[in-house]
């Protein structure tokens, strides 16, 4: 009976949500049909042409220098330049949830002992793969302004390397310095914002030269902020994994 009512309610929700689709007409704003989005009527066009402050030239890869934001990856230019304040809030949410997990489950001194024994082959292989994964993670967040990726995927890859270490070694714990690194990286992000406030007059505004689009040393603050975020997210997710693996194991 409960399942039937739930099915009816979710079906009604589905029908209600369907009515929202394809509602954009000439005189009324709405959700456009799939594939028919019109960038020229959206704010995103200014993000693509990097003309929020009025610059009206064409952005060319490897040629344009000192553009509004020097990041070749347009998503990154939005995430850590135009909407960097948003990202600061996002990092704060992640920090609070990591702290909450630590508060709820913390106190475990030892890892929970698992019955499954890891084969020596897997252990040795993981020791080879882990440094490669760490390098890949660092590569992904350093090149966040040039290629797909950035601080959050890079941090997740670093946490995956840590998870691999934890799965193959029963005694492995997160180093306690990770919490210190996490806190300092959060502080660095805020300090970069305050530096932007003091130098350029607006919180988190770019104050470094933005360079030529497509070079590694370009984008001004973008690679700096993304490296900070990458280290912070990597440390945070590793801390969550460590908390989950050690929850209250000294009680029993």
């Amino acid at each position: 009976m409960r399942r039937l009512i739930a099915a009816i309610i979710s079906l009604l929700f589905f029908l209600m949500l369907i009515t929202v689709l394809n509602t954009e007409t000439e005189d009324k704003a709405g959700i456009p049909a799939y594939g028919d989005a019109d960038l020229s009527s959206r704010v995103s066009e200014r993000f693509v042409t990097k003309s929020v402050n009025g610059y009206d030239g064409e952005i060319v890869y490897g040629v344009t220098s000192d553009a509004e934001t020097g990041s070749a990856n347009l998503v990154t230019s939005i995430v850590v330049n135009y909407r960097s304040f948003d990202t600061l809030g996002e990092v704060t949410v992640l920090f609070i949830s990591a702290t909450g997990v630590g508060l709820l489950l913390g106190g475990g001194k030892k890892r929970i002992v698992e019955e499954i024994k890891v084969s020596p082959v897997a252990r040795l292989a993981s020791r080879i793969v882990t440094p490669l994964l760490l390098t890949l993670g660092i590569y992904v967040f350093i090149h966040g302004h040039l290629t797909p990726g950035g601080g959050f995927p890079g941090g997740a890859i670093i946490a995956a390397a840590f998870l691999l270490m934890m799965l193959t070694d029963e005694k492995r714990r997160a180093p306690s310095k990770l919490k210190i690194l996490e806190g300092y990286m959060g502080l660095t992000y805020v300090l970069l914002g305050v530096a932007g406030l003091l130098i350029s007059g607006s919180f988190l505004q770019n104050f470094l030269p933005s360079g030529t689009i497509g070079e590694l040393l370009s984008g001004g603050l973008v690679p700096v902020v993304y490296s900070v975020i990458g280290l912070k997210v990597g440390a945070e997710l590793s801390g969550i994994l460590d908390d989950l693996a050690c929850e209250g194991s000294d009680e029993s």
Binding site: A37, L39, R42, V43, S44, F47, V48, T49, K50, E58, I59, V60, Y61, G62, A72, N73, L74, V75, S77, I78, V79, R83, L146, T147, P148, G150, F152, I213, G214
Partner: peptide, 24 residues
């Protein structure tokens, strides 16, 4: 939505990068 050595200029047709940033 990445300006690269293949898609060289901002005058090409890119998909909207803003929803992607929000989904991140």
């Amino acid at each position: 939505p990445i300006i690269s050595s293949v898609n060289r200029t901002s005058s090409l047709v890119f998909v909207d990068p803003l929803p992607q940033a929000l989904v991140l």
